[in-house]
Amino acid sequence: MTVEVKKQMMIRDVHIADRPRERLIRQGAVSLSNQELIAILLRTGTKEESVLMLANSVLKTFDKIQDLKDATIEEMMAVNGIGQAKAVQILAAVELGKRIYRKHTEGRYVIKSPEDAAAYLMTDMSSLLQEHFVVLFLNVKNEVLHKQTVFIGSLNSSIVHPREIVRP
C-alpha cells in the first residue's frame, strides 16, 4: 500500500510572472482575485502553508469578503497562521477601504434630500446589528457639521424622546 503525500505548492514554486504581486504590477489590481489581494497584504505564508493557502483560509473563515469589514483582531488571529502583525495589516487595509468608500469630499457634505442623508450614513450604518438613531447637524447651507449617534435601540426599534435630539 502506498500513501501519496501531496506537496503544497509554495509561492516560490509559482512562475515569477504568475505571482500576485507581479501580476498586479503588470495587469492592475482589478485582474486579481480576492485570494491574491489578501495574499499580497499577508506577504508571507507559514512553514506549512503558502501565502495563497493562508489567504484562502482567511476567506473561508469569513463567509463573504464583506464580513472582513466587521472583523476583530481576535477573529483574524483565530485563523491558523495569522498572528497579530498579519491581522493588523489586513484590518488596516480594510479600514483604508472604508475611508475611501465614504466619498467625503474636501468640503462639507451637502444634504439636499433624504436620499443625500441616506447616502451619507449608509456606509457606516449598513452593517449595524441594532437600530441607531443618528442626528446630523447642518449649517444654514445644509452642510453637515457633525454626526452623532443619540440612541442605540433594539434589533428593530429605536424610541427617542425629543429632548435627546435637542440636547446635543
Rank of each mutant, 00 (worst) to 15 (best):
I90N: 02
E131Q: 15
R102Y: 08
L136S: 06
V144F: 10
V79H: 12
E115D: 02
D116I: 01
A119P: 01
G97W: 14
L128R: 13
R108E: 13
V110I: 12
D124L: 11
E143A: 04
T105M: 14
P114R: 07
H104R: 12
E143V: 05
A119L: 13
N139W: 01
M122Y: 15
A118T: 05
V88W: 04
L128A: 03
K141F: 00
L145E: 15
E115N: 08
A92F: 09
K141C: 05
V140T: 08
K103R: 15
E115C: 04
S113Q: 06
A87K: 06
K86A: 05
S127H: 15
V88T: 14
L145H: 03
R99H: 03
Y101M: 01
V140G: 01
Y120H: 05
V110A: 05
S126V: 07
Q89S: 09
Q89R: 14
V144L: 10
E143G: 03
V134C: 01
L136Q: 00
I100H: 04
Y120I: 03
E95S: 01
G107D: 13
G83I: 15
A118K: 11
S127P: 08
M122F: 11
V110C: 02
I82T: 10
D124Q: 09
S126A: 10
A117I: 06
G107E: 13
P114N: 03
A119S: 03
I100T: 08
G81F: 11
Y109T: 04
L136G: 03
L128F: 11
Q130E: 15
R102K: 09
M125W: 05
G83A: 04
S127G: 13
I100N: 13
V94W: 10
A92T: 02
L129H: 11
A119F: 12
T123Q: 15
V110Y: 02
F137H: 08
S127W: 13
D124R: 10
K98L: 10
A118E: 09
T123K: 15
Q130H: 15
I90Q: 03
I90F: 02
L145T: 01
L136W: 12
G83Y: 13
A87E: 02
V134E: 11
I100S: 09
G107C: 12
A119H: 05
P114M: 01
A87W: 08
Y101H: 07
E115L: 13
K112R: 12
E95L: 04
K86C: 03
M125G: 05
V134L: 00
H104W: 10
L138S: 02
V140A: 04
K141W: 00
E106L: 11
S113G: 09
L129S: 14
